[in-house]
Amino acid sequence: MAIYVAKRVGLAILSVWGIITIVFFLTKLIPGDAARVAAGRTATADQIAQARERLGLDKPVLEQYADFLARAVRGDLGQSASTHQNVVTDLSQTVPVTLQLVLVAMLFTIVIAVPLGTLAAALRDKAPDVAARILFVLSGGVPVFWLAILLQWLFASNLGWFPISGSNAFGAAPPDVTGFTLVDSAIAGDPAAFADSFEHLVLPALALSAPFLSTVARNVRSNLIGALDTDYVAFAVSKGAKPFRVVVHHGLRSTFGSTLTIIGMQLGWMMGAALLVETVFALPGIGVYLNQAVLNQDTFAVLGCVLVIGVVFTVASLVVDLIQIGTDPRVRASYTTGATA
């Protein structure tokens, strides 16, 4: 077991390295001159050459790669060509915004999808099930950014229930400690700031959760139905157990593993979709930052973002795997015997 965990962590580190490598060489392969961007639009040939030297772009590619890796290990991701700040500084400001959005969206997803999927499974083929399935289909097909625009228009612009954009109302922001506005306002003991921060998150998180909600709810539903069709559930029912109890006790427990896996996978993908939602709601997160960096050919900023997103995904799937080993006796058995390891 300990061997497996060590192996799994090693693999995670390896894959983060792989991601950086792939992206680094992609940025080198594709056209564009980072030095020209860094020097600015009006730069002379001399200034561009200077920028090239400053960024180390005049060195051979492999050397640049080695430099980047060596510095990344020490926690230095280079300087952004467009914000002229350290990429790490930029990321430390933007990543919490995105992570908070993603985590709240994940919370929404679970809170909505699991009961809905359970309900649909328990009332299979009845009206609520059909309605839920239509909802799954709709939420699975709707483009996130369009839904975000519509939510913003309806609930913020027209109805005024929620703020239109940003992380906080002017002057309501809690003092910046962690970058997570919810956590910061809790630390400051400021309920008004907490409420304000949360209000600003509701619509973006709702929009972001839509496609994932569909996936998770469908998985819960089909897994539950599968579980409820098994002999041991039939046995529990024939023993006199209440159907609802059977659904919750037997069905949901066996659904836990696969749902967890899906949620772990989705976390990474949510970071991608967050790009769009942040743009709509003007949240200063990693998505907006990455989009700017990409459009400006800001190599180090792009690499930094990719590194962070890759790490989030890798850590998420690592955590999911470890939880699964800890909770599911079948998975645990297969790993300890090494049959599938």
Binding site: I19, G268, M271, G272, V294
Partner: peptide
């Protein structure tokens, strides 16, 4: 490894 990056992010870049 490539799948660890959301397609959105990779394609955008």
């Amino acid at each position: 490894i490539a799948m660890a990056l959301p397609a959105m992010v990779l394609a955008l870049g």
